[in-house]
Design a protein around this nucleic acid. Structure first.
Length: 278
DNA sequence: CAATATACCTGGATGC
DNA sequence: TGCATCCAGGTATATT
């Protein structure tokens, strides 16, 4: 599920429960995620350590320990990080379980195993984080995300604007759903060459990106009480989409039929009237 | 170099 | 009901 808002909602939900807690046990499924589970590093740097805080960069969660070590978790396509009572039954696809001294467990459940778990030991954490962050794009909710900056990023790039929005090396956290929604709200056709967008176009992209992502976070956050529920899922699925998944349904703005196309291999939804083809 | 294709997995929806 | 096929919110790597 997770794009930036879902990861951020997960972070905010866990933030009430993790800081100050010590990891008293670690269990794994033994299955390989996108990269192998760093068992040795987990035991060496996370076990019996106290959690200081939980941050987010792009779609990654950074669990910072008092020692300076960092546990990095990526949720892939199907990953969910939930809080469960210690004795609760284990679920299929629980790949990492951190038991806390509060009697609760943080569990990473990921059926497709596209997620990833990494550990940065305290001694190497600063350097690792710098290298990591340099590979990730700018934060859509950060100060660098401006029309001017995007206009410059897109300059000379022969790529569809939707692909640029989804390029995590350039812009962090925007996946297929939110790229579709942002471009609809900005009234820009997804296949438009990025270099053709004017600064005014980019200004709409910036405004709509921030509005939609913040609304999604607030909506997910509003149901954060569910976070400790039986499933452990935070409040995804609350936002109702304007175009994503709405093939053949009427455009919420003009009533015209939403069309589905494939762009760079990803399902793409647009309104032929509100987002005229380039 | 930059853009696209492919591979990594499971599970749900759909169609025969 | 069973079985095959397609599709899915991500990203690293290979290929053009």
């Amino acid at each position: 599920m997770p794009e930036l808002p879902e990861v951020e909602v997960t972070r905010q939900g866990l933030l009430d429960h993790l800081p100050g807690r010590t990891v008293t046990a670690i269990a794994v499924s033994g299955l390989r995620l996108r990269i192998p589970m760093p068992l040795g590093l987990l035991h060496e740097h996370i076990l019996q350590r106290r959690i200081q805080t939980l941050d987010r960069r792009a779609k990654y969660l950074l669990m910072r320990m008092d020692s300076g070590a960092v546990l990095v978790i990526h949720l892939g396509m199907t990953g969910k990080l939930g809080l469960h009572e210690d004795g609760a039954a284990r679920h299929r696809h629980d790949h990492l379980i951190l038991t806390l001294d509060s009697g609760q467990q943080v569990r990473l459940n990921d059926s497709r195993r596209f997620g990833a778990v990494m550990v940065w030991p305290a001694k190497a954490a600063q350097e690792a984080e710098c290298a990591f962050s340099a590979r990730e794009g700018i934060e859509p909710l950060g100060s660098e995300f401006t029309a001017r900056h995007l206009h410059r990023l897109a300059d000379r790039r022969i790529v569809a604007v939707k692909s640029l929005l989804m390029n995590g090396r350039l812009i962090a956290g925007i996946g297929n759903i939110y790229a579709n929604e942002i471009l609809f709200a900005s009234r820009i056709h997804p296949a438009t060459e990025a270099r053709r967008l004017t600064v005014a176009d980019w200004r709409r992209v910036v405004v709509e990106s921030q509005r939609i992502l913040q609304l999604a976070i607030a909506t997910g956050g509003s149901t954060i009480a569910d976070f400790l529920g039986a499933t452990g899922h935070p409040g995804y699925f609350q936002l109702h989409f304007q175009v994503y998944g709405r093939e053949r349904l009427p455009c919420p703005r003009c009533g015209q039929t939403i069309v589905k196309t494939v762009l760079a291999g990803r399902a793409t939804y647009s309104c032929p009237v509100c987002q005229p083809a380039p």
